[in-house]
Amino acid sequence: MNDDNNILVDGFRRLIADTVTPARVREVEETLSPASLWEALHASGFLDMLVPEDAGGAGLMLPDIFPLLLVLGEYAVPVPFAETMVARGMLSARGVSAPEDALIVLAPASATLPFGKLVTHALVARDDGLHLVEAQGKGDDIFGAAGALGLTSGASVGRVPGSSDDLMIGAAAVASAQMAGAMSRMLEMTLRHAGERAQFGRPLGKFQAIQQQIAVLAEQVISCQVAARTAFSGTSFDPVRVAAAKCRAGEASNLVCGISHAVHGAIGATAEFDLQLYSRRLKQWQLAFGSQQYWATRLGMARAAPGNPNTADFLRRNLAWEIVS
């Protein structure tokens, strides 16, 4: 990462840390009214990171925004900021601009729809391409994280070429990056707790059993971060790279939630403590945009397809970091 990008990420992190406090997260979850938070974030200009420069955006690429999505995950940002950023990028690449104050999600077929209760618009697939439609979440918010089970969609306000699978791949990629961010925060919280909480006269982190568990936690987090980073390399989302990222994120969430909650003990599950803000989101994302099994099957089919002499060749050709020239 170059210096410009570091400055960008640092600035973004400060903005999010200042704006999206845990109290703010809880407030949005309870009231389901994102307006004031959205206003603050929208004013930052970060929503147009992927919008081309000649259309008034920053003209950045996927690898540039990946660290921003990690930050969104790390702070459990309770609004579809990443989703709107990516949707605006997809639309503007085809000369379509989204309504200025739209909260947008990518809405392929999915068992749950994170942020569904907050959206004004959604990108949906129809026979003639992807439409930006007015939309409202429907069904229960089963994780209490402003999610929905589906959408009631209205009029189309814009159309770009694309398939339902493009939507699925984009939504899964955006989820994977935020999941990796959320997991890294859970690791950080677990390390802090293990250092502070003492039992039997020692901090928990001094017990070898706990150390070994946290080592596994760290492994899983890094594996997901690396897989997601690769999914954000190149110029567009690639189904194979995204499949690996979402498959990993789905699988690792079990271990990451399991270990971090175990190390926290009872307090980690309480409403007052922040850990559950993250684990609730991870669980919701596990159910969104295809599970581990779904993406594993797709990835396995891709590996089995003719033209791949061996797995090492497959990894190198399809699952390695791609430089944008």
Binding site: A227, R248, E251, W295, A296, G300, R303, A304, T311, A312
Partner: peptide, 30 residues
């Protein structure tokens, strides 16, 4: 094993294969 599964494995086998490939992929990157 992958070669014997052929180009269109049944979904259960494909999922096993895919899960392993997903774990290997970030490791090769590392």
């Amino acid at each position: 094993w992958a070669q014997l599964l052929g180009p269109t494995p049944d979904p259960a086998d494909a999922a096993r294969l895919g899960k392993l490939v997903a774990r290997l992929a970030p490791l090769r990157e590392m």
